Simulated assay, not measured.
Amino acid sequence: MTNKALRQWSWVHKWTSLVCTLFLLLLCVTGLPLVFYHEIEHVLGNEVEAPEIENPGVNASLDTIVTNSKAHFPGKQLQYLSWDEEEPALVYAGLGDELDSEDGNRYLALDARTGEALGEIPFQGTVMFYVYRLHVDIFAGLAGKLFLGFMGLLFVASIVSGIVVYSPSMRKLDFGSVRHHRPRAVRWLDLHNLLGIVLAAWMIVVGGTGASIRGRIWFSVWRNDQLTEMLGAHKDNPRPETPASLETAIQTARDKVPGMIPSFVAFPGTLYSSTGHYTVFMHGDTPLTSKLLQPVVIDAATGDFTDTREMPWYVTTLLISQPLHFGDYGGMPLKILWAILDVITIVVLVTGLYLWFRRRRPNAANRFADDAEIAPRYAGAPAE
């Protein structure tokens, strides 16, 4: 690589890193507790557990669960029902002031065997709620999600450019060298380079998936694209005053995609459905297919099948990205590994900031030391 090309890549690495570092620190710090979200909620007592009952038998009718959900929160609109993948005795209901509202929603846990309401699941106003919102959209809605997604892309660019710069700048040192006998700035630079290159692949995966899962924009694209095609001439059907049996709609969905099980159902008028249809999202029962969804559209007035299709590639990418981003597909060992790598990433970001601010210090001796030891790495000259 020529000195000019190396300087160009160094410029890209420096500025992409500087622009995104503070926001990446925020994402890493807030992402750490989110890795253990369920465990923390359990410790805080914010999870609802299904009681033990004798002879549980057949599950309650979903229509009974719908009735009990509405009765628990009178005046609220039932938006979604979802099933707990790990605890089949639990069903969750999401209700809002309006069918398409997201703010102020309430979440209720119900016993799938009896249909009885077990209690509200606290979310808004909890510690984890504020951590989640900081991580997802910094309390700025869609604009915040898109902004943090862009920061994720800059992070990926800084990692890629750092990989390009690493090899020529370290060609006279053994891989992983940390020169403990040199000045502090040099030691921190070596540590920054070592941790960065070792974690490069993981950081690209987490940064890239983090950028891809920001916001519900992909589901909005799906709704305006594929869902509209699936509805065809029925896309403007009005919302029925008395919807068809949800139990029948779910059974129809099971019959149309055998081997799959319900993940959640979106009621008519919600963000993931149309005004006149249920959308039942089904998933598989293997480790991979359990993360993928296939929508089955059911006419909410008659309970008749309308259409089903596999999700488009961009939604499939989103669904696969989520477990990769949070490390929640391999149990506690993988979560611990993700947490350790997150902490190391924080060290990489902090050392990068330290090196930048040290070079900006006005003391001439410091500038000379930094220029003599650090600048050659970014100017194409071999490291000592």
Rank of each mutant, 00 (worst) to 15 (best):
A5D: 05
L6S: 04
W9E: 03
S17Y: 07
L24A: 14
L27D: 06
V29M: 05
G31R: 00
I40W: 15
G45K: 09
E47I: 00
E47G: 03
G57T: 05
H72C: 01
K76V: 06
Q77T: 14
L81F: 07
S82N: 10
S82A: 11
D84W: 00
D84P: 03
E85N: 00
E86P: 04
D97W: 03
N105C: 14
L108M: 09
L110R: 06
R113G: 05
R113K: 07
G119C: 10
E120N: 02
I121T: 13
V131S: 01
H135V: 02
H135A: 07
F147T: 12
F147K: 01
G152D: 06
S158I: 04
S158M: 01
Y166D: 00
S167F: 07
S169V: 10
K172V: 00
L173E: 09
S177Q: 04
S177A: 14
P183Q: 00
R187W: 04
L195H: 08
I197P: 03
V198W: 00
V206P: 01
A211R: 01
R223I: 03
D225E: 09
Q226H: 02
M230A: 08
E247A: 14
Q251E: 02
Q251M: 02
P258C: 08
P258Q: 08
M260C: 03
P262T: 08
A266S: 14
G269M: 15
L271I: 13
S274Y: 02
G276H: 01
M282A: 09
H283P: 00
D285R: 04
L292V: 08
L293M: 14
T302F: 05
G303D: 04
D304L: 13
E310M: 05
M311I: 15
L319V: 02
L319M: 14
Q322T: 01
P323F: 10
P323M: 10
P323E: 04
G331W: 11
M332A: 09
P333T: 11
A339F: 03
A339C: 12
V343I: 09
L355H: 14
W356P: 01
F357Y: 15
A365L: 06
A369T: 02
E373D: 04
P376V: 15
P376F: 15
G380I: 02
E384L: 10
